[in-house]
Nucleic acid binder design. Structure first.
Lengths: 226, 226
DNA sequence: AATTTATCTTATGTTTATCTTAAATTCACA
DNA sequence: TGTGAATTTAAGATAAACATAAGATAAATT
């Protein structure tokens, strides 16, 4: 794990760096806000430790610039202030945790560990067409109130259709994009998968068809065929 | 964020729920103390809103039982009483904030925000799913009334699942996060550990399965597979 | 050093996704 | 309406993914 420590007092910075450095972490130090932003732009870090009371470019500015670069980067603020207002503002700006000076190194380390272990919250894209909802990330597919189980390949196929809603997709395009190889002209696997997919996303045959065949050209997903 | 509202007057409960519900919060309502405790035991909440004047099982009892389960859970009490004595007792028992009836919804919401923004104490987070309780710090795992002994690695694995409840975790992700190294493609250690974990957290095979395999993608912990 | 225990490896069995085959059906056009 | 090409359908084969058990190694404990 790579950590960026932004701290103007060099002694403190070195102590922190030493405390964090082990076989699993490497630490870079930035002594002022400007350097920090530059380093952040030119390197990839897993975590930022930010002294909120920096001299030239203050912590808030640095935070905002860092978050502009990568809004998912975990940040732990180091602060002397403890007012609720400051804290709220910090959290609003996306700080994950804070620690007040003076602090115990063990405490710092456990916070670093806690934050770095937090699962990154990737908001998954949810596709919707008619009353079909597809969350690829969670592997969840629902038609109306019915939960549907799709296999991996079926889901990949459906996702590709949904990504290209309304567009006609030829067998070649499907092969290249969902199967990652060039089509064997005698293979029937696409048709086979389309069949299963159609059955699954319309389990009781009481809903509108969504996957349409355009003879001689391919398939498309759409509310209406024409 | 998941909030448990404990309030016997259903109209009030619904109004509160509506006020709190947004893209970031989901709200469960318990209409009496008994239901509240049960819900708390079988779910994981980030915050509890507790009406202190409940009919059957009173607020104090409910609070004590909840805190027994998880002493770090933030609780905001709703009360009509304003006596200093009651307040003191409440705070002693670990209430984080209180609000007196009648209240303005904006006020409630800002208090909820304030409390929920407080950094969680790192110690003893208790994970719950179904009737499985896991206290990582204390190395305690229970399924219903049965105490379970897990080895360190098994516990790390389970913790990582619980941290990512509902999310599908690939072998690579598991390797990186639980084993701290890149996967040997021929290694079978994950499957091996999953097997043991499954057996241990369902010792009599009479409970709901919690660890689900999503073929081709990985595993997840969740109440339901789909 | 001996013993226990956790973790990893190996080997084998089982399940299931995916692909293939082949026959039935549909469709566009004569 | 008949014809061939395109598509649909079903069922079976194959290969990949996973589950399981038992044994080997490494680590910890005594």
């Amino acid at each position: 794990m790579k950590i960026l420590v932004i701290e103007d007092e060099k002694d403190v910075a070195n102590l922190i760096a030493e405390a964090l450095q082990d076989s699993l972490s490497t630490v870079d130090i930035a002594n002022d806000g400007k350097a920090a932003v530059y380093m952040f732009q030119t390197n990839t870090y897993d975590l930022v430790l930010l002294d909120y009371n920096l001299p030239i470019k203050n912590g808030e500015e640095v935070l905002s610039e860092i978050k502009k670069e990568n809004k998912n980067i975990p940040v732990i603020a180091i602060t002397v202030e403890t007012s609720q207002e400051t804290k709220n503002k910090m959290f609003e700006m996306g700080v994950d945790d804070y620690i007040t000076k003076p602090f115990i190194f063990d405490d710092l380390i456990s916070r670093v560990n806690a934050v770095s272990r937090r699962p990154k919250k990737i908001e998954s894209k949810i596709y919707k067409i008619d009353d079909l909802c597809v969350d690829v990330e969670k592997h969840q597919v629902r038609r109306g109130k019915i939960n549907i189980y799709l296999t991996f390949k079926e889901l990949m196929l459906l996702e590709f259709f949904l990504k290209n809603e309304g567009r006609i997709l030829s067998r070649t395009i499907l092969m290249e994009n969902v199967w990652d190889f060039n089509a064997d002209p005698f293979s029937n696997t696409i048709e086979s998968h389309i069949l299963k997919l159609r059955k699954k996303i319309n389990p009781n045959k009481d809903k509108r068809d969504l996957i349409h065949t355009i003879k001689g050209r391919g398939y498309k997903i759409d509310l209406n065929k024409w």
